[in-house]
């Protein structure tokens, strides 16, 4: 089944790299949506069916943490898995994000193999549920 994926990052080059990595990883992508910040992402999420979100943390207008908090407060959006993709390596930060309900954390730079594993793990968990 193809996944509708939303990529949220203020960097167009990172959005392009994630799109390319998804293809290289062999992940079946249906619609690929892109947003430059959390506010744009929430608008897309409210208007479209999205199966999985890849999001940065540090973005102008609305950062990733605020976006995740708003998704958690919404009955429908809170069920969408969020994978945070960031340069930060702080274990404390990652724990904070996990306590807010993110599904996985990928540290940049990343490989297609890692992205594939993360997506497979998330889909596997959903199938078990």
């Amino acid at each position: 089944m193809a996944l509708n994926i939303l990529v949220v990052d203020d960097s167009a080059v990172v959005r392009a790299v994630i799109s390319k990595t998804l293809k290289l990883a062999g992940i079946p992508v249906g619609e690929l949506y892109q947003a430059a910040n959390g506010k744009e992402a929430l608008e897309i999420l409210n208007d479209n069916w999205v199966d999985l979100v890849f999001s940065d943390i540090n973005m102008p207008v609305m950062g990733g943490v605020e976006m995740i908090e708003k998704m958690s407060a919404d009955g429908l959006l809170k069920t969408i898995p969020v994978v945070v993709v960031s340069t930060e390596g702080s274990a404390t930060r990652i724990e904070q994000l996990k306590s807010r309900g993110i599904s996985a954390y990928i540290r940049k730079p990343f490989t297609p193999e890692l992205v594939r594993k993360v997506v497979d793990d998330i889909i596997g968990r959903q199938d078990e549920e």
Partner: peptide, 29 residues
């Protein structure tokens, strides 16, 4: 954008290498 990304990745890696994984540091854009 690419130059910004190189900086972003370098900054994240340098700070982890110097301050360790438990440190909490906020990065600007």
């Amino acid at each position: 954008d690419s130059l910004k990304e190189v900086l972003n990745v370098t900054c994240g890696q340098v700070l982890t290498a110097i301050a360790g994984e438990k440190a909490l540091i906020n990065l600007s854009i």
